[in-house]
Design a protein around this nucleic acid. Sequence first.
DNA 1: TTAGGGTTAG
Length: 642
Amino acid sequence: MKAILANVKYLRTSLSSLSRSYSPTPLASHAGAGNPSSSALHDEFVNLCYQRDLPNAMKAMAAMERHGIFADSITYSELIKCCLARNAVKQGMLVHKHVFSNGYQPKTFLVNTLINMYVKFNLLEQAQALFDQMPERNVVSWTTMISAYANAKLSKKALESLVLMLREGALPNMYTFSSVLRACDGLVNLRQLHCCMIKLGLESDVFVRSALIDVYSKLDKLKDAVCVFNEMETGDLVVWNSIIGGLAQNSEGDEALNQFKRMKRAGFATDQATLTSVLRACTGLALLELGRQVHVHVLKFDVDLILNNALLDMYCKCGNLDDAKSVFNRMVVRDVISWSTMIAGLAQNGYSLEALKFFDLMKASGTKPNNITILGVLFACSHAGLVDDGWYYFQSMKRHYGIDPEREHYGCIIDLLGRAGKLDEAVKLIQEMKGEPDATTWRTLLGACRVHRNVDLAIYAAEQVLKLDPEDAGTYVLLSNIFANSQRWEDVSKVRRAMKDKGIAKEPGCSWIEVNKQIHAFVLGDTSHPKSNEINRRLNQLIHKLMGIGYVPDTNYVLQDLEGEQRDDSLRYHSEKLAIVFGLMSLPMESAIRIRKNLRICGDCHTFAKLVAKMENRLIVIRDPIRYHHFQNGVCSCGDYW
DNA sequence: TTAGGGTTAG
């Protein structure tokens, strides 16, 4: 029986080989067609193509042509795949010449294969030339070009091609839509495309669906992305990854993790992309313990660069630099993102000098810095008070690394000068900077004014922020406090009125802490936590103890009258204080107390955290939306500037 | 012969 099956198999192979071998070109000499030696030549050529033996296949093709035998479209196509597999550009171009020699009119699919080869070799012009000369273009020809335009970020050309294709009468398929969606950079286009896909009944294709979810997420239309996802009856891993990634990238970490749980329950195995997005969600939510659990699964994909970079970032952003360094040291391959992540991570967590050492190591390793690397370097300089070094890096970045300073780099230098109390120079730089300063630029100056108590400049900076970002509650609050501290009550009323008129309310402060894999959230005045009474009792005891060693609540940080609360109480129950006390109650002595906040930490809580860290001999790490604070032995890594 | 998802700052 086995022998019969083997014979049947042999027979099929031979027939298939014969059908490929004997399709000579119209103008080719047929003299050798029935000649066994010519047939052997052709067979050998076909075999070499299928074996991806490019050098010998090229030789065989030449020998064959010397005998007047020419390959058919299928075999040429195999040879082109051979060139692609070996990244052999020159040979690919040579095959192109052969295809069009002897007046042969190649079939459409062969020209498509050639176009695809040029696209993959990044030779868009050559692909375009072939495409333009085609007498007949089918959906594959158009899709290959649309995909090439999308890859080259030529969005307009990709979308225009879709229109031209329709005008020519070619009907787009799921391949076309999943390609053109990558080029979609505006909502109007996207809505039209989406309708078109529904009409053609292509919306349920998994490739189209994942591309739709991805593009809606990238255009900040998460609700639409979720809608597309929820309509899914059948899906695959990539569709799940698209929604998890979209949520994680749009600061919806909680929801990303929920979808991840649903995906696991649905029986899907995770891959590198899933884990990368889950890590990103952990990073956003500062979930160190969950991140550590994911780390165990990452070990399965040890050499995946993107995944390791995400892991590195998770440890940095959760304030755990030892683990970040350990991951970094074990990485088999590192790229500019790995280095930039480490440099920024060290700098943001207060290890500026080490960040600059890493920058030197990076240069020695031969990795070229990019604009983000330089941001990390400048950040490190400003946080270590290295004004001269910061200036040097800023002024030489173009010369040494070919990177033009952008608004963000100016922002770092304004911060650097601001920290050093050089407010006049900071203002001068804003006036001289290339491009218009934005709200963030002025907010940076405002921060410096607050620290160095320059009231007039602070008012000016705050006004500039509000001109550019009229809804910025934080700046209104700050401005109101500045006026109140200067006894300018009329101005205080004006700010309050403006807030009321515009319906701007101060975002309630919220702090999160992870204990036993559970997230505990605290809001000012919120008594919903099961241990609320005990937390408040312990907090009062702690404040009493701290006052014994000189702690005086700093009521400068209370927004006068705006919240209608008692000033002391308002300060006393700030969310981070509640979270710190809960951490002291719930975590073992050797564990750091890690807290994430949605608002910037206030001066009073900052002093409170420093004193608690010293008195209780604990490491307290608080991550606010901009800065990291490591409180230990009565000092903070931010150097009291934030 | 054509297609989809993951990493650094802000």
